[in-house]
Every structure is written in C-alpha cells, then in structure tokens.
C-alpha cells in the first residue's frame, strides 16, 4: 500500500476518534478509489474546484464521505485542523456531506440516502451533453446500493442517452451478497448497455489504468462506463477487516492507538 494511503487512513481514525462516529469499514474500502480519481484520473484541482471545466465526482455511497474529505484535504482544499471538527455541532464535516457548506467546491452533492447520487450524476452528465461540454462525470457507488431501483432507472436513462462521459465506479466490498443474491453485476450492467471492467479496488494504478481504457471503450460504443472495483471492508487495518462490529463505530483512546499501529504495520500480502 502506498505510504500516503496509510497516512490518509490514520487521519480517518483520528477524525472518527475526535467526532465520536464513523463508518470506517466503508471508508477504508473506498479510499484507493477516491485517491486514484483525484490523483490521476479526474481533471480536478483545488484551483478549478468551482470551474465549469472541472470533472465531477458524485459520491452516491455516502458512507465513503470521510474518505473524500481526507483526499481533498491532502490536495489542499481543507485544513487538517478543520477536518478534526468532524461531526461537531457547527462543523462543516458530517458523516455525510452537505454540499451547501462548501462554497469552495469539492463536495458536489449532499449524500446520505442511497440511490440518489447515481441518478443525480446521470443528470449532470446529461446537462453537459446538452451544453456540448466534454467534462467527465464520475460516481462512487457501493455494491449494496445497487439494490435500489433508482440505480437501474438511472442506468436505463444513461444508456438510452448515450452518456459516454459518465463513469460509474462500484465499490464492490461484497455488501450485497450478505443480504441477497443479486447475481453478476457485470452481466447485468453489460445487459443494460454499459462498458464494464473489473479491477482490484485497492490497487491505485490498476484503478487508473482500467478507468482510462474503459473510457476509450465507452467513447467508441457511445455508452456509459462502469468499473467494478473489488474491495474489502476495512481494508488496511486488520481489526476493521475482521470484526463486523466496526461497521458503525468509533475508536476510543486505546483503540485509536492500536488501530493506528495496525495501519502502520499492515502488509498487503497478509
């Protein structure tokens, strides 16, 4: 794992400890995807965060929001000090973001209720198409979210309107298989007309490479794209990967020390 990703995970642990809340398993599952998007895929920087030329990232999987905060902070959009106000009464940084609190950009949508972000992203991509613009629109969704009917309504619309600048990234941490057997997401999305690829969702280079080749395919097919990024809940911290109680929990002082150490010593081959 990149040293930087370990640092970001440790910042998440500190935020969760400070704000006394967190979906750390979901955040750690999405972190490489978010990092890859902002550091090699998207046309985005703090300097163009409100420019009409920027690429968009819509976070449909709201539980990953803390990951977005730390990646954007790493790029200089927010200060680490402000991140540590996480979940305070008058903080800008909640468990799920409120876009109206971020006039400097970065947070494009207010997430929380699953099944809303992807259709909104389809609307953003459609608006760009109408305006003749070529901005890419990325969406981070969870595999569990694919249970929502609105995700498939939006998929039909996106294919029908040939939204080739739209790229859905599914953080597939096998949430859905714990509830229902949905079968192959890949086959379903192909049937819905998407260009689809699979990758290791914790390998930054693989994420970047796959998105780039998917976008070429999508452009050629005039179809939307979908990357199914295979991930592990709580990745990068042994306890979070193995103890389900960490789905919605924050570390106390002692746990913060232990989990931080686990992140430091995490070895990908384990």
């Amino acid at each position: 794992m990149l040293k930087k990703l370990k640092e970001l995970r440790k910042t998440c642990l500190k935020m969760s400890h400070a704000g006394k809340d967190g979906n750390l398993q979901s955040v750690f599952s999405s972190l490489e995807i978010l990092y890859a998007l902002y550091n090699g895929v998207m046309n985005w920087s703090p300097q163009i965060a409100t420019s009409s030329e920027r690429d968009y990232l819509i976070v449909s999987k709201g539980q990953a929001t803390m990951g977005q905060y730390v990646v954007l902070s790493d790029l200089g959009l927010f200060s680490t000090d402000e991140l540590m106000t996480f979940c305070n009464f008058d903080s800008r940084f909640g468990m799920q973001a409120d876009r109206t609190k971020f006039p400097e950009g970065g947070i494009e949508n207010s997430a929380g209720s699953l099944g809303h972000g992807f259709p909104m992203a389809v609307g953003v991509a459609m608006a760009h198409k109408i305006k003749g613009k070529t901005n890419n629109v990325y969406v981070l969704a969870g595999d569990g979210e694919m249970n929502e009917g609105t995700m498939w309504e939006a998929a039909i619309f996106a294919t029908s309107k040939k939204l080739s600048k739209l790229c859905l990234i599914i953080d597939d941490n096998e949430s859905i298989s714990k509830m229902l057997s949905i079968g192959s997401l890949e086959k379903k999305l192909r049937e819905f007309g998407f260009a689809v690829a699979n990758c290791d969702g914790h390998n930054v280079n693989e994420i970047m490479t796959n998105i780039k080749s998917l976008q070429k395919e999508a452009e050629m097919n005039q179809s939307p794209a979908c990357l199914i990024a295979h991930t592990v809940r709580g990745y990068g911290c042994q306890t979070l990967m193995t103890d389900p109680s960490w789905f919605h929990r924050f570390p106390n002082d002692e746990e913060l020390k232990n989990l931080t150490k686990e992140v430091d010593t995490f070895c990908e081959n384990k």
């Binding site: 949508n109 259709p119 609307g123 953003v124 459609m126 608006a127 760009h128 609105t150 939006a154 039909i156």
Partner: peptide, 25 residues
C-alpha cells in the same frame, strides 16, 4: 435533446433532474 418523455420513473427522474439543475439547467 432537452425535452424528453422519459417514461414512467418519477423518483429516478427527479434525481436526474436535480443533477441537471446542479449543472445549471
């Protein structure tokens, strides 16, 4: 391009409309 009979999916469509509004349409 801008005036569409989407068919029968009010909830997803309203989110799509919100995305369009987010982008100035």
């Amino acid at each position: 391009e801008r005036a569409i009979n989407c068919g029968i999916f009010e909830d997803g469509m309203i989110s799509i409309a919100a995305g369009m509004s987010l982008s100035g349409i």
